[in-house]
Design a protein around this nucleic acid. Structure first.
Lengths: 106, 106
DNA sequence: TAACGCCTATCGGAATCCGATATAGTTTCG
DNA sequence: CGAAACTATATCGGATTCCGATAGGCGTTA
């Protein structure tokens, strides 16, 4: 299991504040990144399958949902993995600011 | 050309404050990440080749260097690509803090 | 010269990316 | 009503990237 890519981090983050189904995740990610990160169907659903296999998300569909819709929730492990990756980003940024000020901020 | 992975961002960052050869990059990345991110030879040299092909780094070896050592420097495009990716990380972190406080900081 | 650390390179299997394609249900609107 | 557009999921296939294993060459030191 490789560390999640930025795309996958966005998927996890979209689930961090509430359950979502795949298509809604896609829309939210594209919205919050201003279209910077897009998720084609291949990327999206294969990533979801992988995350479920790895236990970072789990299905949370309710009988009230439309039958062909699958809702997912972030697991505890998923939240932990998200935190780890965000920390990595924070560390890179901190280091970048330290050694090369003017690279990010201007 | 896909966006650079976190590993590759670390390679670019290692070059942002001065020219380096591959092995020195590897050592610096492992040092600054406290061993969190390791670079095996395959990852390292293939990434370097790709970055050179894409024009993000260029060879900067001098005749004074040992003959089998290849030193690289970050190009203008490389610095720009690094900046773009760091901004993405910053944006994710900002968003994560906004929607899910307590995910990162505690 | 043997051993060790430095330095680069390639191979191959696995993982991931991602557009194209397919399928279906739902909503919108003329 | 019926066509178009949107929602929603799934799979295929080629390309890219990862990354450990393997294999060198060079320089220094014992």
């Amino acid at each position: 299991m490789r560390p999640p890519s930025l795309r996958v981090v966005h998927i996890l983050l979209a689930l961090s504040s509430g359950d979502q189904h795949g298509y809604a995740i896609k829309q939210e990610v594209e919205k919050v990144t201003g279209g910077d990160i897009r998720l084609g169907p291949g990327t999206l659903y294969e990533a979801i399958q992988r995350l479920e296999e790895d236990g970072l998300i789990e299905e949370a569909s309710s009988p009230a949902d439309p039958p062909h819709r699958r809702t997912y929730r972030l697991t505890f492990a998923g939240r932990a993995a998200l935190r780890v990756e965000l920390r990595r980003y924070g560390a890179v940024l901190e280091h970048a600011r330290a050694i090369s000020p003017g690279l990010i901020d201007p």
